[in-house]
């Protein structure tokens, strides 16, 4: 069970959150009709061992989307920031 420190509500239990997917992967421009790029963006995911940037929504709390950096081996959470304060390109920790 994860405990995620919501920037607005404090540290809360995983049951309050919904996983929103890989935060590091972006999508092509809507005008981009290249099927391979869209297939890659929609279906293909890395399965990294270690640091992973991901989106979570505090669905039963403040309803805000969060960028979370989590270690997939230890489940240790390194950082949590509001998604609106971090660009997807930069990642959850601003790097």
């Amino acid at each position: 069970m994860l405990r995620i420190a919501c920037p607005y509500c404090g540290e809360r239990d995983q049951v309050e959150f919904t996983y929103g997917g890989d935060a590091a992967s972006g999508f092509p421009a809507l005008a981009d009709a290249d099927l391979d790029r869209w297939t890659d963006a929609v279906f293909i995911r890395d399965n990294p061992r270690g640091e992973h940037r991901e989106l979570w929504q505090h669905q039963h709390g403040c309803r805000q989307w969060l960028y979370v950096v989590r270690d997939t081996v230890t489940h240790a959470i390194q950082s949590v920031v509001p998604a609106r304060d971090a660009s997807p390109a930069a990642g959850a920790d601003g790097r």
């Binding site: 509500c9 809360r12 239990d13 049951v15 309050e16 039963h60 709390g61 403040c62």
Partner: peptide, 10 residues
């Protein structure tokens, strides 16, 4: 106060 979930109910 806390916004949370009880018995799957917000």
């Amino acid at each position: 106060f806390a916004q949370s979930v009880i018995h799957h109910i917000p």
